[in-house]
Design a protein around this nucleic acid. Structure first.
Lengths: 216, 216
DNA sequence: TATTGTGAAGTGGTTCACAGCT
DNA sequence: AGCTGTGAACCACTTCACAATA
């Protein structure tokens, strides 16, 4: 099996991340009623350089006009489509802890195309409590629920020890992507996407930066 | 071992992030009583390859024994020192929202060397409420408090519109590193470290991955 | 035999610089 | 003149391959 997935050049993960930031900026400018923006402005919003912005966008097509800039509304629509935000995504959250709570419904995910369909927990003390308008369900029901209505994205918000197990269950239940909030690396079959949000790791990185950059 | 600060090539950010994952694994193995671990095991824990692990570690010195592996406890100590976790770090959190709450004291940060000294908020409705054993303080007091006891790390957990302003204030008050929980890029003077935790961006990345690699 | 440490080669993302439109 | 689009140069991180060592 010599299939390398998409024949077309692969998109750099860093490009995708910047597109998300560009989109946030574009929507803000759209509110302001701006008609066009130069790559320089997008660069500032995305923590990149103007050349980087142009490279990122040119990968998907020519959206700007030379001498003018990029049209705000059409570009926002295009970026939204590129990221796949033009269709809705069903999200299930497992783990109603502090981080999981940030993913609870009502935080504005819906406007961006993410529907938080259910929140589960392993801890009996949490099951049945309210979480952003939803009642926390017993994680034991996960498989049965998802068999009826599959989800696209699973959020792993349980403690480290339980994280890999929950990930395995979510993958078996058919989710195609995982957002991992536990401070461990998750092993998943190829074909399932994972992104990590690891607060401990970020703090460690800051501690290192302070240590290393201690000279002035 | 003429390998120390003599030649200060820069450390790759990705190396630092993996070191944090290696450390988590080492501490777990130490609990289990393991004496040594091969690079293969560390690689699995860090989502890397054995060669990558050896490169990462060899950057800082020779900690392993050929034919045997790496001694668990000494390596854990070394990595902790490399990351700068052997000294305490004072952390102040601004924004007692859902994400900020995940940083509240009690989540085990102290064991890793991070002391959450205070939690602030701009919203009068939140000021005075309890957050993980601390009373949420008025963000207006930030400068006065930090003048007395400076903090090393500031957490920006306020809404997007307020994020840059809070970042500026934290930097002016002397923090050397920022953990940004708001979904925007922060502009800070060079010399101040920033790491982003952006849930919206991670979900966008997953949406893109599903769209692009939708094959199963 | 097992596993580390590391120069060398490889890969892929970023920056440059300028041609091409407006 | 101003700004985009893009091949090419550049640079940084990763992987390879093997000598060194237990």
């Amino acid at each position: 099996m010599i299939h390398k997935a998409t024949r077309s050049r692969r998109v750099a993960p860093s490009t995708v991340r910047r597109l998300s930031l560009y989109l946030g900026f574009l929507e803000q400018r759209r509110q302001d009623g701006a008609a066009t923006v130069p790559s320089r402005a997008l660069a500032e919003a995305g923590g990149a350089t103007p050349a980087q912005v142009r490279k990122d966008l040119s990968f998907f097509g020519s959206f700007g006009r030379r001498g003018v800039g990029y049209p705000v509304a059409p570009l926002a629509e295009r970026v939204r489509a590129i990221l796949g935000l033009d269709r809705g995504h069903r999200v299930v959250v497992v783990g109603a802890g502090p981080l999981g709570a940030a993913l609870a419904p009502g935080a504005g995910w819906r406007e961006r195309g993410f529907e938080v369909a259910a929140v589960y927990d392993l801890d009996p003390a949490r099951i049945g409590t309210a979480q952003g308008g939803l009642v926390v369900r017993d994680a034991a029901r996960l498989e049965a629920d998802l068999a009826g209505r599959p989800a696209d994205i699973g959020v792993v918000g349980v403690p480290v020890e339980a994280a890999q197990g929950v990930a395995d269950r979510l993958v078996r239940a058919g989710v195609r992507a995982l957002l991992n909030l536990a401070p461990v690396h998750l092993d998943v079959p190829s074909g399932v996407a994972v992104t990590q949000v690891n607060l401990a790791l970020e703090l460690d990185a800051l501690a290192f930066a302070i240590r290393a950059g201690g000279r002035k």
